[in-house]
């Protein structure tokens, strides 16, 4: 019999859950927050921080780039911002192209 699973949409993770999920240490998380690579969605003090689940993939990407390309965290923060901008522009461009073909195409 196939099991029915209860799902959680965009769960917010505390520091411990986040570190496990992203396979990083708490010390590294502090550094990533300092560089705004990981941005908590709630909590003023470190022990109260909550992170959006989507931040996990950003942090994983950051750690892969750090490990494979030997770029420092400040450089990675900049690279991630630029990659994000490129991604947004690509999505917008695709959207506009689609709209254009709907209104001007055959």
């Amino acid at each position: 019999m196939i099991q029915l699973i209860i799902s959680e949409v965009n769960p917010q993770l505390n520091v411990e859950e986040f570190c496990h999920c992203a396979s990083i240490s708490e010390t590294l998380l502090h550094e990533l927050v300092e560089h705004s690579i990981a941005v908590p969605v709630a909590g003023v003090h470190a022990h109260e921080w909550l992170f959006n689940i989507t931040t996990v993939s950003i942090v994983k990407k950051a750690t892969r780039i750090h490990r494979d390309l030997a770029i420092d965290w400040a450089g990675i923060a900049l690279a991630l911002n630029l990659l994000d901008d490129i991604e947004k522009l690509k999505v917008e461009n695709e959207h506009l192209k689609k709209q254009l073909s709907r209104f001007c195409g055959e």
């Binding site: 196939i2 099991q3 029915l4 699973i5 209860i6 799902s7 959680e8 949409v9 965009n10 769960p11 689940i53 989507t54």
Partner: peptide
């Protein structure tokens, strides 16, 4: 693994759904 997952109304592109322990 074969599961049935409840997808709540209003999920949006890019969101993530957690299936704990799977």
């Amino acid at each position: 693994k074969s599961l049935k997952v409840k997808i709540p109304a209003g999920v949006a592109d890019g969101e993530r759904i957690r299936l704990k322990g799977q």
